[in-house]
């Protein structure tokens, strides 16, 4: 069973008069099989939370643990490896490499991980997400919803312990947003993943297993 734990995490930017507390004393725990929504207005600290969870930043105080191991103790190289192998990112934009076809997006992951899973696993994933016919398409030939589904498939391809999604529905209409979030929830439940979605879109809050709210750097569970 995978887990992601924030222990009294505080993140401060700047010093003196320009000091800004982005996150304050956050305690948070996520376990496999959960879709967790983190909501809050712009500038509340959501993305800071996500980037710390993804090992892209280190907390000023406190600790972040993945499967009971502290991220802080890892070297930059180990953190890069961790992101490649344990974490899947789904972002609002620039998700896909523009000059690679859908199929090549997966091959890139293979090359980086020096693995050869490709065909069968890729086909299974794309088939599950209804994307099989898009294999030879470039990102600019896909709709917003298709791009996000491909990004989700790619994030899942390495079989990560958890997926971090930053505003994955921001560019989508309500119908497509609901489809993407339902897809994420199904993946969390069926594939036993931790999926954390950071969003300001409150329409999504009834779809998640847990909902946290961040306001002015302080986090509380609201659902």
């Amino acid at each position: 069973m995978s887990n992601l734990i924030f222990e009294s995490v505080t993140k401060v930017f700047g010093e003196g008069s320009s000091k800004y507390v982005a996150l304050e004393n956050i305690n948070f725990k996520a376990e496999s099989g959960q879709l967790i929504l983190v909501v809050g207005p712009s500038g509340s600290g959501k993305t800071t939370f996500l980037t710390i969870a993804g090992g892209l930043q280190t907390p000023t105080e406190g600790d972040v643990k993945i499967n009971d191991s502290t991220i802080k103790s890892l070297s930059e190289k180990q953190q890069t490896k961790l992101r490649l192998e344990k974490i899947g990112f789904v972002l609002q934009s620039y998700n896909l490499v523009p000059f690679l076809t859908v199929e090549e997006q997966f091959k890139l992951v293979d090359k980086l991980k020096k693995q050869n899973l490709t065909e069968q696993k890729m086909h299974e994933l794309l088939s599950d997400l209804g994307l099989l016919e898009l294999l030879k398409k470039y990102p600019n030939q896909l709709s917003g919803g298709q791009k996000q589904r491909v990004a989700i498939a790619r994030a899942l391809y390495t079989d990560p312990d958890y997926i971090l999604a930053d505003e994955p529905t921001a560019a989508l209409d309500t119908d497509r947003s609901m489809k993407v979030i339902e897809l994420l929830r199904d993946l969390a439940h069926k594939r036993n993943k931790i999926i954390i979605v950071v969003t300001h879109d409150l329409r999504l809050k009834n779809t998640a297993d847990k909902v946290y709210q961040i306001i002015d750097g302080k986090m509380q569970m609201i659902n």
Binding site: G54, L56, K77, T80, K81, L82, R83, L84, E85, I87, G88, F89, L91, S93, Y94, N95, V97, P98, L112
Partner: peptide, 18 residues
Amino acid sequence: QKLPNLGVLKAQGVSTQY
């Protein structure tokens, strides 16, 4: 022109060396 993509690739675990 491709800095945003490079940033995302780094976030996704692609090493700077690569």
